[in-house]
């Protein structure tokens, strides 16, 4: 397992119905591309986050495939329109099978 992997998410606590909100996510991860060699000339095996998804009350907001050229600590910022009070679920899938999750609730007043 990659070390020190920690997801971070920022979602506004509340919004008005139909408002476009900005969501920011960041996960600390080395994103080892598999193209590099260590000091002895051996290839360092690829170890990246290969997929990131965000859902709102079970409905997909964004589903991203990540490739090896994406740098360390991948950061995503995107907009969403929230129709109702609910929960955003964020999921990152690691090459080694690990899955990291975070969730944030938002109140629509």
């Amino acid at each position: 397992m990659a070390e020190n992997v920690k997801p971070r998410v920022r979602v506004p606590r509340d919004a008005t119905a139909g408002e476009e909100i900005t969501i920011k996510t960041l996960i600390s991860h080395p994103m080892e591309s598999g193209q590099r060699k260590d000091g002895d000339g051996n290839v360092i095996p690829r170890s990246i986050i290969n997929r990131f998804t965000c859902t709102f009350n079970g409905e997909t907001v964004i589903d991203v495939t990540l490739e090896p050229a994406i740098s360390t600590n991948p950061y995503f910022e995107f907009q969403a329109i929230v129709p109702e009070t609910g929960t955003f679920e964020f999921t990152w899938y690691d090459d080694d099978g690990d899955v990291y999750t975070d969730s944030k609730e938002i109140t629509v007043g």
Partner: peptide, 12 residues
């Protein structure tokens, strides 16, 4: 702080 990549190291 969310956008400051240095804060990742602060967490560590």
């Amino acid at each position: 702080d969310f956008e400051n990549p240095g804060m990742i190291f602060v967490d560590d």
